[in-house]
Design a protein around this nucleic acid. Structure first.
Lengths: 154, 154
DNA sequence: GCGCATTAGTTGAAATTGCAACTAATTTAG
DNA sequence: CTAAATTAGTTGCAATTTCAACTAATGCGC
């Protein structure tokens, strides 16, 4: 289009917060995902499932989906993979035969124990550009933004 | 697995920054994406291309890919869609016949002019839970994290 | 108890994505 | 100038993701 009727309305993508948030998150996720894939042949979804299981042994697929915010069908297929590799154990709940109770297997816990320190190391490296106060600020801001965004409706 | 050898190594996913960043960004992206899709039948990729074109008329597909950090094949296909809907114009560059020069069409600019204020409104709503100082802090922290993450290597 | 609504989890199929191969144009090295 | 290397953009195809439909089990109202 011709230039004469421009600049009336303009969005500066590089300064737009939702965009920058997405770019940053993407960069970080890609870095981490690549490392887990290279070192452990685990996708981010698979790793997150294991991370939840490390904290909450015996949760159901649905609870994992809630906690990780990952689609339940993705969780279901990822669980299939993890079972195939014997990284997790699953048994159907006695009280509710629809539910399954999932935990890390012995092997799974070994892998988990290897990944956890690595994860903390990555987090530390990422946050190395901020001092302690700034790290706390960031953490606080993210929590508040999330709580707020959670009941936003566009 | 049995409980006696746990708690030695543990990751608290809810407190893990890369994870929280990803969850927050996802939530925001999903909200925004749904709105653009409902109101304008545009995907986030399509909208981002238009946003770049609003700022930089005449850029090439490759430059869009660089600026948005979106795969060039995705950009190529999205450009195809936008052309089909006459939201953008494309002509091959005189100086380099491999390059194409892309701009918003008249219609595209009309749509763009509608989306831009909406985008700012969304950003404003998202940031409504922070005061001005906190908003600036967040902006600064994100910039620094991104610059830092950009040359991290796990 | 019986029937309807809800919930956990799985699966098929369509849509989207990512990667690598490819074409065509341009640049660079010798 | 020519040949090899690089670059812009497109495309095919496999992998991943999404969405809805489906099964099986449970809860709820009456």
């Amino acid at each position: 289009m011709s230039d004469n009727n421009k600049q009336t309305v303009l969005l500066t993508l590089e300064r737009y917060l939702p965009y920058r948030l997405s770019i940053l998150s993407n960069k970080v996720s890609t870095l981490v995902a690549q490392s887990y894939k290279d070192k452990f042949a685990l996708s981010i979804t698979e790793w997150r499932i294991m991370a939840v299981l490390g904290e909450y042994p015996g949760v159901s697929a649905d609870e994992i989906s809630l906690k990780t915010q990952i689609e339940k069908s993705l969780i279901s297929r990822a669980i299939g993979q993890l079972l195939k590799r014997n990284l997790i154990d699953r048994q159907t709940s006695k009280e509710d035969k629809r539910r399954s109770e999932i935990s890390l297997s012995e092997t799974g816990y070994l892998v988990y124990s290897e990944i956890v320190p690595l994860s903390y190391e990555y987090e530390k490296q990422l946050l190395a550009c901020l001092n302690e106060e700034e790290q706390n600020q960031l953490s606080d801001l993210i929590d508040r933004l999330y709580a707020h965004a959670d009941h936003l409706k566009f």
